[in-house]
């Protein structure tokens, strides 16, 4: 059975009708990846701490890269992990770029006045990229330490360190009273 997807208005419909521009095999591949992973990558961007509209842009940027380097993505052993890693990287870069901008960015200027913003979703905001990536790959993608090490191209020992640092940072955020600062 063909997968059900959501159209521009959120109404379920058949994947085969969307869109007409999908002529080539390559575009079809990117389309399938997009359908399967857009929501996940949006969540990754939000959890890392970018604004809603910047999260749209993160998804856009990642899939623009997929379209430009389809072969690289096809060769990835674990495409989900690869995309999540790319999304964390893009989101972090977006945050840094936004901070560097002296003037008020267009994104903020055009933010909708109503509607959900981060709403506490940005748990990993400010965490270093390697720690955030390791935490997401472990807890959300469900990879083992050795699988994370393979994706991040680091040693298993380093993955353990990253996860431990990430957890420690989160524990402090979750319950700051339990982790008083050293005098």
């Amino acid at each position: 059975m063909a997968p059900r997807v959501t159209n521009l208005l959120g109404t379920p419909r058949d994947d085969t009708h969307y869109p007409d521009t999908m002529a080539s095999d390559e575009s079809g591949y990117v389309e399938r990846l997009y359908r399967a992973h857009r929501e996940r990558l949006f969540r990754v961007a939000m959890v890392v701490g970018v604004a809603r509209e910047a999260a749209w842009d993160v998804v856009h940027e990642v899939f623009r890269d997929v379209l430009a380097h389809t072969d690289r993505y096809r060769a990835a052993e674990n495409i989900e992990a690869y995309l999540v890693t790319a999304a964390v990287h893009t989101a972090r870069r977006a945050r840094v770029a936004a901070k560097r901008r002296e003037s008020r960015p267009l994104d903020e200027a055009l933010d909708a006045p109503t509607g959900p913003q981060s709403g506490g979703a940005d748990l990993l905001r400010g965490l270093p990229e390697p720690e955030a990536t390791a935490l997401l790959l472990h807890y959300q993608v469900g990879l083992s330490y050795s699988e994370i090490a393979a994706v991040m191209k680091v040693s298993v020992r380093h993955v353990e360190t990253l996860l431990e640092r990430g957890r420690a940072a989160l524990r402090t955020r979750l319950d700051p009273d339990d982790h008083p600062r050293e005098p």
Partner: peptide, 18 residues
């Protein structure tokens, strides 16, 4: 993390824009 993941779910508006 699960709670944050849940809160980060895209709305119909987000999906439409993307």
């Amino acid at each position: 993390l699960d709670r944050a993941w849940h809160r980060a779910a895209p709305t119909d508006e987000d999906l439409a824009a993307m």
